[in-house]
Design a protein around this nucleic acid. Structure first.
Length: 209
DNA sequence: ACATTAAGTGATT
DNA sequence: AATCACTTAATGT
């Protein structure tokens, strides 16, 4: 039983599954690889079979900000709009963990919209989900204080990694959240005192999931 | 032993 | 919440 059927079989009809198998290219990507860079032209869309992808926004100065994570069964809404509009990517996608995915040529994704209603539903649903996540990210940035943002970030990261031991540094976190390392160190200390996490060198254990 | 990197802390804005 | 300046601790060569 292949992974496509496992992750998408309940969504797509058999004919669509077999078409995906014919034209899709399986790819394995190791953790920390940049999959899509800002400014890239997108010529195929990915279906995530396994692992997690971190989607980032970046400003002119090169400062980053994490928008959301994609998990198995997801697809990237940015590629959807790019494939349609021939536009460049406005986000960067980095493999958070080792990832397996299927790349589908963009011509097919448009063709299938008319051909398979399950595909249409999937695309629309994906858009809806991404929109929700984006609004959630906006809320988080606009309305939550740094300490709440941080804890949410840690929980999200633990979730997508399926591991409550996060291998990361205060510096990396500060870059993801677009703040300074000192602030993160202090807030992490506070979270530790509250019993929500445990701090180690180069790793953090999330206690309260 | 020395250099580098990660993390902790007080003070200031 | 950001920045500076400094310390301490862990790790690499």
């Amino acid at each position: 039983m292949n992974q496509l059927t496992v992750n998408f079989g309940y969504l797509f009809e058999d004919a669509l599954i077999s078409e995906i198998n014919q034209v899709g290219i399986h790819k394995k990507i190791v953790a920390d690889t940049t999959i899509i860079e800002i400014g890239d032209y997108i010529k195929s869309m990915p279906l995530l079979l396994n692992g997690a992808i971190k989607v980032l926004r970046e400003d002119e100065k090169g400062d980053e900000l994490v928008l959301y994570y994609l998990e198995k069964g997801d697809t990237c809404a940015m590629t959807l709009s790019c494939c349609m509009g021939q536009a460049k990517s406005k986000i960067r996608a980095v493999a958070e963990t080792d990832v397996t995915l299927i790349m589908l040529p963009k011509e097919k994704m448009a063709e299938w919209l008319g051909k398979y209603k399950t595909w249409q539903a999937f695309i629309l649903q994906s858009y809806h989900n991404r929109m929700d996540e984006l609004l959630d990210a906006v809320d988080t940035i606009a309305f939550l204080k740094m300490d709440e943002r941080l804890f949410k970030y840690l929980k999200d990261k633990a979730m997508v990694n399926q591991n409550d031991e996060l291998i990361t540094t205060h510096k990396q976190i500060s870059e993801d959240l677009h703040t300074s390392r000192v602030v993160i160190s202090r807030l992490l200390k506070k979270l530790e005192n509250e019993g929500k996490i445990q701090l180690f060198r180069n790793s953090i254990k999330v206690v309260q999931l």
